[in-house]
């Protein structure tokens, strides 16, 4: 796996952690990966349109399936939301948390591929203004 993918995996883990913490605080029952995708959907749809977002998420899901085959039961609904996310909630041994990281990292990775890490970070910042991502990004840039 190349360095940029490692960076996106790191971002994905951090975003999932932020959402997990937020979920604990609010007592919500939606998986953090779903919440990450929903938040990205808002800023990405505004920028790229709903078609733009769903096509990227569809591709991210396909790539994530290659890494974590158990994700094959997850489907993308026409409105851009994920269906069958129960698989994300299963234990580590069944690929649960790794699956969440894979989807998120590939979605971010696609953005990085197309528009570069700096602009991807700016888009992510629209949804998570205080997520701890910059330090890692700067380190990789430097």
């Amino acid at each position: 796996m190349d360095m940029s993918s490692a960076l996106m995996r790191d971002w994905a883990r951090r975003l999932l952690a932020v959402e997990a913490a937020s979920q604990s605080a609010t007592g919500a029952h939606v998986h953090e990966a779903v919440r990450v995708c929903e938040k990205l959907q808002i800023s990405l749809t505004r920028f790229a349109g709903s078609d733009g977002f769903t096509s990227l998420l569809r591709r991210a899901l396909a790539l994530a399936c290659s890494d974590v085959p158990s994700l094959q039961i997850v489907k993308l609904k026409p409105d851009g939301s994920l269906e069958g996310c129960e698989v994300l909630a299963v234990s580590v041994t069944n690929g649960g948390p790794e699956a969440a990281v894979a989807i998120t990292a590939h979605l971010l990775g696609l953005l990085e591929t197309f528009i570069g890490a700096p602009l991807t970070l700016k888009l992510v910042r629209e949804a998570w203004s205080d997520a701890p991502l910059d330090e890692q990004h700067s380190r990789n840039r430097g």
Binding site: F47, G49, F114, G116, L119
Partner: peptide, 11 residues
Amino acid sequence: EPPIKMLRYQQ
């Protein structure tokens, strides 16, 4: 032009 590609090229 899809915005993602527009940004890709314009940058």
